[in-house]
Amino acid sequence: MLHPLDLPTVLLLHKLSFFVAALCFLYVRSQSRESVGLGFLAIGFFLVAMSSTLVSVGKAFQGLEYVLALAGNFAGLVGYSLFWIGMCRISTQARKRREWLVLLLPVSVCAGLFFSGLYVSMQVRTCVFQITAASLLFAAAYTVYTDRLIEPLPVRKALAGTIAFAAFLSALVFVGILFPDITFVSARNAFFVSIVCHFAIAVFVLALVKERAEEGLRRLADLDVLTGVHNRRSFSLRLPEQMRQGDAIVMIDIDHFKRINDGFGHLAGDEVLVRVARELSQRIRPNDSFARFGGEEFILFMPATGLEDAMSLADRARQSVSAIRHPIEDQKVVATLSMGLAVCEEKHCTPHALMKLADMALYASKASGRDRLTVYRPEDFSADSSATTRVRHAS
């Protein structure tokens, strides 16, 4: 028959769990150096593990017992503070100088214990340590959870929940010491369950780094490398299977782009492409989809817009690009746009059919002198293929 573990054994395992979790953080950091904050998580857990060691060493030295115990409290609270900094950084992937102000918390708490003389009481030291640790853990959980609005990774909820549960266990220990008659769980059981929390935190941090890396790869696969806007593949995936009445497609082409490449070089042409793409992407609405379709050609999908609004939005974008003066080799180069607009007039139509009509309108813009927007209207375009061929050759 198995006997329950005694409190000293549980505390030893509790300390070792911090060491193991810290080693996991260091391992993840060695495999993913772009994720900031992992080093702080490791140092923080190492310090928390060392805090109980200092308390144990202090018992072997009479006269230094209380001083080393206070030093252990300070090391542990600094560790939890660094854990909070690490979680903030790994959650936001940003460094903020104001985060270091949290280190004033362990300094002020331990200074208060020392100057009040309460540091000689193990009960007071433990209560102050547990409630401060719980506060820092709750703050870390809150940061991870709220940042899901900025980076909605699935593992965030699990990580935040685990940290919050570890904070809840520390709060239970605090309550159990103050009110031993009404405690819901013994300190031994609370420390034992928190061991599992430490391992779970390490696993979920590893999952967060992994999910972030995979999301980054997916994002790169959806973007055009040069311009940073969506590529043709991702644009096609974002289109609905059936267009509805009022949906609009705009095909866009930079006029005489080959002349820019031939006259100034491909690097200059790339600069023009990037600036044109940036200007157009700033003109679209939140629900619109914009992508580089290939070469110097772009495409814009405007759902539920209607002919008049689509014409107005597209032409304003065309004029804004035409107003740009690109500085190339001490010259001011103008890159104008030809556009073809097609609007779904039926109750339903396919994306491919609407794109084909917009493409015909685009070539009509080129045939008419470029730097203009042409709207596809059935009465203006011949249904036979020879007319379409003449428009393409004229461009």
Rank of each mutant, 00 (worst) to 15 (best):
S135F: 15
V185S: 04
M302R: 07
V120F: 10
V109C: 09
L16M: 12
A111V: 11
T53W: 11
C197L: 06
S30G: 15
G295Y: 08
E296F: 02
G72H: 03
G86V: 03
R156A: 00
K332L: 11
R283N: 09
C88P: 01
L101Y: 14
S91E: 08
A314Q: 02
L280W: 03
Y142T: 14
I324L: 11
M355T: 11
V334A: 08
P8G: 08
R370H: 07
M355F: 03
R275M: 07
N73V: 13
P180F: 10
I284H: 04
D330Q: 14
L101D: 07
N231Y: 09
S121G: 09
P286I: 01
M87S: 11
I90P: 02
A268C: 13
H256Y: 12
S234D: 13
I85V: 15
V334S: 09
I85F: 08
A75C: 12
A323H: 04
G263H: 09
E99M: 10
R98W: 04
I201M: 15
V250G: 11
A171I: 07
A304S: 14
L357R: 15
A394M: 07
A317N: 02
E308Y: 05
L267A: 15
A317K: 01
M50Y: 10
Q62S: 15
E214H: 11
A202P: 04
E379V: 08
L7N: 07
F199Y: 13
A69N: 12
D181V: 10
R278I: 03
Q62K: 13
A166R: 00
C24S: 14
R148M: 05
T227A: 02
Q130F: 08
S386H: 08
F301K: 00
A367N: 08
A42I: 07
A335F: 05
M50P: 05
F83M: 11
A364W: 03
L169V: 02
K59H: 07
T388F: 12
L226D: 11
I201F: 07
E296P: 02
H3R: 12
A213F: 12
R125W: 05
F114R: 03
S338D: 00
S382Y: 06
